[in-house]
């Protein structure tokens, strides 16, 4: 039964993530963290971090990771298949239509309206990641905030916006900073 749940969850993720890259992130969060509680918010954030540092789409990486954790290699296979199945069907049909009619206007029109929504949902998932980073699983108030994490976040933002550093490099640096702060204090 768990295989069916994994399969169905990742079909939904594959079917509704428009816009590539981070667009799948809020959907994965919804299915994996909230609906099924297969991962904690911390594990989910680690997963996004790992996805950033390895090749491959976030959705495929997540399917493999969650599948492995919940039901081993068969789980990983089932989840990954689920996540690419909608693409296979939808893209093949569209490619077939395109090769026949050569017209993409309606499709791109829909995407044009989806893009602002996708930006917002990525932002919303980002907010939750930051809440987890700044407060852990504790209560959100000014006393509970981890100031070292806020500092690392601020340094990372400045590095990303002001330099042309690779994001992977900035993330590793953020990790090393945390180790150094923990050793000192």
């Amino acid at each position: 039964m768990i295989y069916l749940q994994l399969f169905w969850s990742f079909i939904q993720i594959g079917m509704f993530s428009f816009g590539g890259g981070y667009a799948a992130m809020p959907l994965i969060q919804g299915q994996v963290v909230y609906t099924h509680e297969w991962l904690t918010m911390t594990e989910f954030t680690d997963l996004i971090t790992i996805s950033q540092m390895t090749p491959g789409p976030i959705a495929v990486n997540s399917a493999t990771f969650v599948g492995m954790k919940i039901a081993g290699i068969p789980g990983a296979v089932v989840a990954t298949l689920g996540c690419i199945l909608p693409s296979c069907i939808i893209v093949t049909i569209l490619a077939k239509l395109y090769l026949k009619y050569r017209n993409l206007d309606t499709l791109q029109g829909i995407l044009y309206s989806l893009r602002p929504a996708v930006v917002s949902m990525i932002a919303s998932a980002g907010v939750l990641i930051l809440v987890t980073a700044f407060w852990g699983s504790g209560i959100i108030n000014i006393d509970g905030i981890k100031w070292d994490m806020v500092l690392i976040f601020a340094i990372s933002v400045v590095l990303l916006r002001k330099t042309k550093w690779n994001p992977v490099f900035v993330m590793i640096l953020a990790g090393i900073l945390k180790i150094m702060i923990s050793i000192i204090t």
């Binding site: 911390t42 680690d46 971090t49 980002g126 994490m149 976040f153 933002v157 990790g175 180790i179």
Partner: peptide, 17 residues
């Protein structure tokens, strides 16, 4: 500790994106 620090880093990457 490394992963925890990287959470702040990945949050920054998403904010930037």
């Amino acid at each position: 500790q490394l992963l925890e620090g990287m959470q702040a880093g990945v949050g920054a990457v998403i904010a930037s994106v």
